[in-house]
């Protein structure tokens, strides 16, 4: 972003990468694929790079409002300084926090999740599923991220990105507003679960496997970790892939 501004350019959209997208090895792949999609359709975008910092989401969900607001206000200062208007995020948690909780602290932007961007591009005819891997007839089940689905009512965008593949979409019993959490939300990602009968991600992956999928599709880097671990623990890595909506889109377009 800094470089763009220095060159006197203005991006159409700011890509908010998020901590997982920046540091987590698996999520970095998703980040790169989102960039490939943006590049492919010719959208001029920027990232904040080292000027980006945690949105404060995990701190807020865990009850540390101080830390959340410190992070939020610092980020808002940066975003406002660059006069950012539109943001696309690679993570539903960043999406929810910036979209819903930043306006009250002085940061109002148009915020979309990358699945919504993909849906828009498909609707505008700028993005198709051609020139890459064919997903025709492959069985895909989509796991709704809580902070995209229930938290913000976005159920159709990720499905639109899958429908264009001509694949066989199968829904889990608990889907959309009734979807089961992967177990990572509310700062659970950063701690051991409380004692119980089972880990939540195992409960979820068992349900996903009931649909006999070849691909479990995700839209959140934290869900990705939980689902991937679940598939691994169930020893199904050979025949079941866990892929982000962006990765599937990039693959389908040969990016």
């Amino acid at each position: 972003m800094a470089e763009m501004v220095a060159a006197g350019e203005e991006p159409e959209i700011l890509f908010w990468v998020g901590c997982a997208g920046s540091y987590d090895e698996r999520a970095q792949k998703i980040t790169r694929d989102i960039c490939k999609i943006l590049h492919h359709v010719g959208i001029k975008y920027a990232v904040l790079g080292t000027e980006e910092s945690c949105t404060g989401d995990p701190a807020k969900r865990a009850g540390n409002e101080f830390l959340f607001q410190m992070q939020a206000m610092a980020n808002i200062e940066v975003l406002n300084a660059y006069q950012v208007k539109k943001i696309v995020t690679g993570c539903p948690h960043c999406f929810n926090t910036i979209k819903n909780e930043y306006p009250g602290l002085g940061g109002s932007y148009e915020v979309i999740h990358h699945s919504q961007l993909i849906q828009q591009l498909i609707n505008e005819g700028k993005l198709r599923a051609e020139g890459g891997e064919s997903f025709k007839g492959r069985k895909i089940t989509f796991h709704d991220p809580c902070y995209l689905g229930r938290a913000n009512g976005v159920y159709e965008a990720p499905r639109a990105a899958l429908e264009i593949l001509d694949a066989e979409l199968v829904e889990m019993k608990r889907c959309k507003s009734n979807g089961l959490c992967c177990g990572a939300g509310g700062a659970q990602m950063f701690k051991e679960p409380e004692r119980g009968k089972k880990d939540i991600n195992i409960e979820r992956i068992e349900e996903a496997l009931l649909t006999a999928p070849q691909i479990v599709a995700a839209g959140c880097p934290f869900c990705m970790t939980m689902l991937k671990d679940g598939v691994k623990l169930k020893d199904r890595e050979q025949d079941v892939e866990v892929l982000d909506i962006a990765e599937i889109t990039a693959r389908a377009n040969g990016l």
């Binding site: 901590c19 920046s22 540091y23 995990p58 701190a59 865990a62 830390l67 950063f190």
Partner: peptide
């Protein structure tokens, strides 16, 4: 996690300089 967010701007112990 709080400590990491506060010091590194991320919930994990990574350096902010490595964000890109």
């Amino acid at each position: 996690m709080f400590g990491n967010v506060e010091n590194n701007g991320a919930p994990w112990k990574y350096s902010p300089a490595d964000r890109l």
